[in-house]
Design a protein around this nucleic acid. Structure first.
Lengths: 213, 213
DNA sequence: CGATAACCGGAGCGGTCGCTCCGCTTTGCT
DNA sequence: AGCAAAGCGGAGCGACCGCTCCGGTTATCG
């Protein structure tokens, strides 16, 4: 009800306040993740609670709106990776760029795996899925990515690296690159050893995402 | 003040209640992790809040006491791993057994990396550290574990796998084995590619642990 | 058996959180 | 200029959390 294009344009004070909320939310969510409180955001923006909740019907909607740019950068990282002539390099660069975005914007945590009730994120994942599949297939065809890697293994990589980013915080802000390096060494075709468990099914991935909201 | 051996033995109702609290806590913490509320535990045990807090001066102390057996099993997994003739197999089995314990007892999450103010856990880590170093050095000497792996990389493995266990929950309860499999493939000496970042220092690991409580 | 210290339960405190409600103010059209 | 509608701020709700406090109960010992 609140973010739909209204019949009348916003009153000047309203649109000004909306911008201030978005700016504060963007800054605070990026710096400290999705569990910054709405109260802190509205204080930072210098508005009341009522003002915030007239523009965004709940916290998830605010998050989703504020993250829209980040979704775009994420999608661009994927397109750039596909443009890379070497399939393996492209695959690695995708992960590096996507995770660098997670470092710069800690509210992105969990978005790759589909957590939160955030329709824009859902839409982005749907658009990206075929590209991601292409990236993976291309690297497999090249013989560089291990053949038993599945699209549904992607959440493992993001869960894993996101956790390292979160845990290390400001104390070891670059250590996720080391973790990703080890993981990538394990994803090379030459390193492959039979894995003890089949990948998740799409249904499982979806159920896990749905359970986390 | 509460768990020290008292001058007098506990009154019969007191010791009975203590056992009920420990039993409930063990079951609930194991099933759902450390953030089960103390209120739920005391209700499950059928006692009042006062009773619980006379026996354990705070939640962390209850956790630490209840996890003591688990610490023992963990240490035993490490000793068994060192007894294994093949160094690499020993290394792998240590991780598999330790993480299987994390699945059976979700309150163990974060213990490997030193989170929480839990003295018994701290003591166990101190006792285990030299053994762990031996396990790693032995596997490196054998030429199976990559040479640039450091003791301080261990938290990466536990953070990473714990996160997968947590995320997958009951939907894909075995998928952590797949993740660990990929990670282990990346830890093999033959798979090693130069890593982009130095391992954490001991000081960093300590600071991270201290920050998380 | 009666005294008393130890033990009991749970209401309630002070703190989070996301979110609602409503009396007052401002804006922008007429 | 006047006025209704739109927008405003923030107190406060209800649900959590870990933990404290205290009046009533009960086990244990002389």
């Amino acid at each position: 009800m609140s973010t739909k294009t209204p019949s009348r344009p916003l009153r000047s004070d309203a649109s000004r306040n909306r911008e201030r909320i978005v700016a504060s939310a963007r800054r605070l969510f990026a710096a400290r993740g999705a569990d910054v409180s709405v109260d802190e955001i509205r204080r930072d923006a210098g508005v009341g609670m009522g003002t915030l909740y007239r523009h965004f019907s709940n916290k998830d909607e605010l998050l989703d709106a504020v993250l829209e740019d980040a979704y775009g950068e994420w999608a661009q990282a994927l397109r750039q990776a596909l443009a890379e002539p070497d399939a393996w390099v492209g695959f690695c660069e995708y992960l590096e760029r996507a995770l660098a975005l997670h470092v710069a914007n800690r509210a992105l945590k969990g978005v790759a795996a589909g957590e939160g009730a955030r329709p824009r994120a859902e839409a982005m994942r749907a658009r990206m899925r075929p590209l991601l599949r292409a990236l993976i297939d291309r690297a497999k065809a090249q013989g560089s990515l291990r053949d038993d890697f599945a699209l549904e293994d992607m959440p493992l990589v993001f869960w894993s690296c996101d956790r390292v980013i979160d845990a290390a915080g400001d104390v070891a802000p670059e250590i996720w690159r080391r973790h990703l390096g080890i993981l990538l060494d394990g994803l090379r075709a030459e390193a492959a050893t039979p894995l003890p468990v089949e990948p998740m099914t799409r249904a499982q991935v979806t159920r896990i995402a749905r359970a986390r909201r």
